[in-house]
Amino acid sequence: MPNLNLLAITTAIAIGTLTRYLLLQDDYRNYPSFPNGHLIHLTVGFVAAALGSVAIPALLNEDYVAVTFLTLAIHQFREVRKMENSSLMNLEDTELIPRGAPYVDGLAKSFEARNYVVLLTSLVTSSVILFVPTFFSVRVGLGAIAGLLFQYFVAHITKDKCVGDVADVFTAAIHFQDSNLYVDNIYLTNVGLPLHQEHILNDGIGIIIEPHNLAAAVTLMNYGSRQAIIHEVARILGVRQYYESRRDSFSHRIGMYILVVENDPKALVQVIEQVPLLESLRRKKILDFKEEQ
């Protein structure tokens, strides 16, 4: 007859590590990098799953001291966050267009949070296996399903919103009045040389980002948001020498022109729509409340 505790722990570790793998999906931003970035995070995820899975069996065996290992886990996950933060900040100097501190902070935070998701998923899985009184194989199946459902639920509620969720993004005409460059009716900059004006008119793409409401406008007016947008565009489509963005303080719209290496306006709009809204910059409750009034 199999040992129930062992069964619970091994299943929970497996489900927890699988959770980390699922959360580690390679998105279009290609971060963390493959293979070393993935290996690091899968290994830390495995450790998180192990810590989460032993907590309940330890309590049932009246080994209360073992639960203090959870504090060790929290310390370890904070280290993951610090490691990601410093690693990304070290890269900032060599990036053509840096991510910006708010974006780096958001990325590091989400890596820490994902380890908590793994730990809690393992905890839920082992709890179900230990406390649902039925056959061993059914316990394992129910535990796995409960863990995966929990992971899906938490991943869903912690998923970042994107620029496209809170604003309309569309292309707009670029034009000059004397040497002043406008996208639609938003003034962007002054371009003194005719050659540069010609480049911009021929190859530049004008973009307007129109927030849906005041909360979105306040979020997007932060320079960190715009920095993240330009960074993602540069990483995915490549940016030539010129770009500029400005906010129209009356309509709250953001105007932007950019010369991308891969000159595809549809792809540009899509990339901007998928840029995550940075957690530390997001504004919601007070402004939404006022709008409702």
Binding site: D178, S179, N190, V191, G192, L193, P194, L195, H196
Partner: peptide
């Protein structure tokens, strides 16, 4: 224009035209 263009390249500057 030619002088401004050359200076812009040499000094890594942006050129602006006043009215």
């Amino acid at each position: 224009i030619e002088i401004a263009e050359e200076l812009g390249r040499l000094m890594r500057g942006d050129v602006f035209r006043l009215k």
